[in-house]
């Protein structure tokens, strides 16, 4: 009886652990922003099958607070070998920005990075900080 109970507990624990692999969230570090900064979230599928995920940016690690000016990631699975991006043309000043994605399946073959771009004196923009999603 004791063995049955113990085994049932073990099976329950392992079941919880495997259920957690059904959807995976990957998130970048939060990068401090300044004036006239642009940001981007890049996602690349390095696997052999399409990957479905829901991507978004976060201000100070809060979801559903900012929305990209361009987005070719959400709405369709990312095909093998392809890269998609979310771009913000002017992110909120003096906050911090991070990218996150809820991956429906295994995130093993998804490589992703958050980038912060700042204006340079000679004109144009330069990537000045980045953080990988994991």
């Amino acid at each position: 009886m004791k063995i049955k109970t113990a085994l049932a507990a073990l099976v329950a624990m392992l079941g919880v652990a495997s259920a957690a692999h059904a959807a995976q969230t990957i998130t970048s570090g939060s990068i401090p922003t300044g004036v006239d900064n642009r940001v981007a979230c890049y996602f690349r599928n390095v696997g052999a099958t399409p990957i479905s995920f829901q991507a978004q940016g976060m201000i100070n690690f809060t979801r559903n607070f900012t929305f990209p000016n361009f987005d070719n990631c959400n709405g369709a699975p990312l095909a093998p070998g392809r890269t998609c991006v979310l771009i913000w043309n002017d992110i909120d000043d003096d906050t911090s920005f991070a990218c996150t994605a809820d991956v429906f399946g295994n995130a093993k073959n998804l490589r992703a990075a958050a980038e912060l771009r700042a204006p340079v004196s000679t004109g144009g923009l330069k990537v000045v900080a980045s953080s990988e999603l994991r």
């Binding site: 998130t27 970048s28 939060s30 990068i31 300044g34 690690f61 912060l116 000045v128 900080a129 953080s131």
Partner: peptide
């Protein structure tokens, strides 16, 4: 998730 950023006098990140 944590990130270290070094910034210049104008608070623009340098690394």
């Amino acid at each position: 998730r944590a990130n270290l950023t070094l910034r210049d006098a104008n608070e623009v990140p340098v690394r």
